[in-house]
Design a protein around this nucleic acid. Structure first.
Lengths: 298, 298
DNA sequence: CGGTACAATCAGAATTTTAGATAGGAACAA
DNA sequence: TTGTTCCTATCTAAAATTCTGATTGTACCG
């Protein structure tokens, strides 16, 4: 069915109710009183339904009118929002931002930043894709995302440093590696099962770093962490990603001989450089601020 | 902000996209091609935003146009729905149905019936209120509900029998009453704590039936059932309400000497008789059918 | 190079909406 | 009661908008 009632008519309905009468509504709408009267009457005749009735000399909503009023509110609101979106698009704002987030990135950073961004620009869709290692590079090189957060990135791109992510090797407290009394050497590690995250890029790339004899691969870091908590092996994780399991004693940091931590510089890359829209630019700013807040808060 | 784009203009946008061009859209809308062209142009100039661009001799959506198209779909859809609601209201359909449900009524009945009703009339709001004993009567007498499901009701009202609800006295299997080897007399019951549901009507009414020396009262039957499952006392419940605890051995039927079950006729009352709207009438029909299905399914 | 399908544009016509004036009814005060 | 005020309904002419039909200018197709 095609709507035959104009948005202006619905607006008139709202105005009459909110202003408390036809006359006041007319003023609010910068129309004459007869125009408002006409609009309502036309609506009523189109619907063959009485919306207002006269109680004394005031117009009050009928029972049906109340129901329609609520709907009309939502309808006009949505129309306004749509136009607002259009205004933003007209200013060059993007309709959608594609965000590629490497699995090492702490959720806290992304969620806080997106929450802030959503308040400023609720109309811009955000498309998240989780990537791993070379998957992030692919997102940059092939323009699959407008904004990429990752640890490694192809050279030649403008990258903004965000956070210094501390990595640590961890295992369940009952894991055999924790029973050894000395600091662990690479050889110790090699004798146990390592949990790694599968590269989301082309399959034959292996950015794999230590070569453990046994390794299990997971497609997401979260799955891998859950496995580690079950004691299924040891693994390297960014500390920010495993604060909860560490506190709950489900995981414990392994004492590695050459320093128990590795650092990775988490960077933000704008694959199209300065050609990105103002929305992407703004989101990038917010991400940077959020990252700073997080690193200062620790 | 007040919307300045007409619904018709949004519809034009949809039509052009869906039909695949201005000319075809014109046909679909029963307008001339120039009218469609005019509508789109006006919209574009109001928003100072290009929505279509010419690829060869075809009009295709710009990037921004795609985003607006999605919104426009939702918007027009909502407008159509609102008018549909108005149509129903015009036919005398109510905007809202108030339903008073006694706490003895099995959820199954209400939920199934409402599910069916919601499919037919998704635009009618349903307001549920849970009542107890004289609370149900009050809902009828004072027109607080359009439809009442209860076991007892004031005389003089049109009541439709729905279900025969079987009541049984139950207690946790470990309850002392289950340890007695003989059939239970009223005197046996009186020596133990009874769990009852508080009357939701005026406080001084006591439709209380057996007089147990000790009794705990609950404001909802669900709370009472949970208490009984904990072994806090015995109580009378409709069997349909406690099938789950019975199966899980949390409750067990007490062997009462004069028959272990009582029956209550669950009835449906239309407080305003035939003056109710078609929606209420329809819901009543559905409830009746659902009740029949339930009683046959057992 | 026609022929055709499509969108932009224009002028006048048709339709819709508006303002302003007026009338009638209800509230209110004296 | 009466007069006054406030409000909505209705009417007419004017204003604004939207529509049609014809025309033009392109791009595609053979």
């Amino acid at each position: 069915m095609k709507p035959r009632i104009t948005l202006e008519q619905w607006q008139a309905l709202l105005a009459v109710v909110d202003a408390g009468g036809y006359a006041q509504a007319a003023e609010q709408l910068n129309k004459s009183q007869s125009a408002v009267s006409y609009a309502i009457q036309k609506m009523e005749s189109l619907l063959s339904l009485q919306i207002f009735e006269l109680a004394g000399r005031k117009a009050v909503l009928t029972h049906a009118g109340v129901a329609l009023y609520r709907r009309a509110q939502a309808l006009v609101e949505e129309a306004a929002q749509t136009e607002q979106l259009a205004q933003q698009l007209a200013k060059g704002m993007e309709a959608e931002i594609r965000l590629a987030i490497d699995t090492i990135v702490p959720d806290e950073l992304v969620l806080c930043a997106l929450a802030t961004f959503a308040e400023e620009a609720p109309l811009i869709r955000v498309q998240l894709m989780e990537t791993v290692l070379s998957g992030s590079e692919k997102a940059i090189l092939e323009r699959e995302a407008d904004l990429v957060l990752a640890g490694v990135y192809p050279s030649g791109y403008l990258a903004t440093p965000l956070l210094q992510l501390e990595f640590a090797a961890v295992a369940h407290p009952d894991h055999p590696l924790h029973q050894l009394s000395h600091a662990l050497s690479p050889a110790d590690l090699r004798r146990h099962r390592q949990l790694v995250v599968r590269d989301s890029g082309p399959r034959d790339i292996d950015a794999g770093w230590l070569k453990a004899d046994q390794r299990w691969t997971f497609s997401t870091m979260d799955a891998s962490i859950r496995a580690a908590c079950q004691g299924l092996g040891y693994a390297w994780y960014p500390l920010l990603k495993i604060q909860q399991p560490l506190q709950q004693q489900q995981l414990q940091i392994l004492p590695i001989s050459q320093g128990s931590a590795r650092n990775v510089q988490l960077s933000m890359v704008l694959p199209r450089g300065e050609f990105c829209g103002p929305g992407t630019q703004r989101l990038a700013d917010i991400l940077q601020q959020t990252a700073q807040a997080i690193s200062e808060g620790e």
